[in-house]
Design a binder for these strands. Structure first.
Lengths: 216, 216
DNA sequence: GCCCGTATGGGTAGTACCACCCATCTTCGG
DNA sequence: CCGAAGATGGGTGGTACTACCCATACGGGC
């Protein structure tokens, strides 16, 4: 029984590395590759895909959005999220989005395969283990129904504002760009900060970069 | 005559992808792999290395710093910088640091090999070609001696302040951390902004992330 | 000796940001 | 139809940041 994998990463060389690692295993096979999140959703709907391995930061649609979409439209599919960063909040966000597992890109090749296997066994996998158990418990709780609605979901308008903030625009400039009042921009930014638990524009900037909304 | 390559990237899976791409060519051979910039400098000093391929963002020492160091200590070595971002200023910074070439991670595998070959032929290679010719000319000029000293060089103290700014600390917090007055923190930040041509803390944050001083 | 860069610190003013309060209007789902 | 959520906008006050001015001290190099 071979496990058929979808790889999604916007860097061909990374996809290639993953492909090499995964196809070295006799019972794994890469059956599809996506360049961005939107493509991943389309390809992930194919019935022959058993497991989707997605990078977080991708153009058009982030890996987390793709996971959310796939979890909704094809609940049986297992999803493993790859990320560069290991802060708790990213892990939590991924689990909340419905990911089956979360692995850092900085781990060894064999650990990535191990994560794939764990996820296919049905475990909710997080690596490295250094991540607090409490967090994983919370993730489990959330993932088992209850609150799958994360309060981190930004509206389309908020994403527009966040993008401009992270590009270094002032409230005045953003207001001119979006043709709304400065107060409304401030209001949006305040709402975003509250949703994300951010302190100031610097926090928002780092968040936007992690999400791939803007380049650093 | 085989070309012996040093790969430097902090993500094993990326190194693996590069290795696969490069060793598919009969006249290329990967003879060393580094996990960070500091390691890359050590391994790059080995005489059997002909070409060093380095990622920009790495722990301990960035790819650009490693290139600078290697260019100084082993001028004959060819260096190719890999980056996620294609803004002109990053390209220019890489060339200024002494890199022989600059390639985006988002290009196709074959183009990376092509870049390696171009660099080994002695070309100063920049990809994609969309980069303005004027920029490459300027890069050439700078690389041929003249002004290798950029006014972007921050002092040790300024780097400390920049790091804290990019972590989202306020002036007051930074002042307490470094045990100096708020005014001095402001003074440092103003100097940094002027050196980097940044407008505000958001710009500084993005810069610090590009340099790998902080995680996003 | 003198200048230059670096680090330190002060003053003053204007602007941006942030944290609260408040409201209206639309849209969408139960 | 009504309520919730989203987008819009206003007010007020406090804090942080930014842009200027200024000075002192220390070290190294010409």
């Amino acid at each position: 029984m071979t496990i058929r994998v979808l790889l999604a990463d916007d860097h061909p060389v990374v996809r290639n590395g993953l492909k090499g690692v995964i196809e070295r295993e006799p019972d794994f096979e890469v059956v599809a590759e996506a360049n961005d999140g939107a493509e991943a959703v389309v390809l992930g709907m194919r019935p022959e895909v058993d497991l989707a391995v997605l990078d977080v930061a991708m153009p058009r649609m982030t890996g987390l959005q793709a996971v959310e979409e796939l979890a909704r439209r094809r609940p049986g599919l297992r999803t493993l999220v790859l990320s560069m960063y290991d802060a708790d909040q990213y892990v939590l966000a991924a689990i909340r989005a419905g990911a089956s597992g979360y692995v850092l890109k900085s781990v060894a090749d064999t650990d990535i395969v191990g994560a794939c296997r764990a996820v296919m066994r049905g475990d909710s996998f997080v690596f490295p283990e250094s991540t607090p158990q409490a967090l994983r418990d919370q993730g489990e709780l959330v993932r088992r129904g209850r609150g799958s609605k994360s309060d981190e979901t930004l509206t389309a308008r908020e994403l527009e504002v966040l993008k401009l903030v992270a590009e270094g625009r002032t409230s005045r400039e953003i207001a001119e760009t979006l043709v709304i009042s400065i107060k409304t921009v401030d209001r949006h930014r305040a709402n975003i900060k509250e949703k994300l638990g951010a302190r100031d524009r610097v926090d928002l900037t780092r968040y936007a970069i992690r999400r791939g909304l803007v380049e650093p």
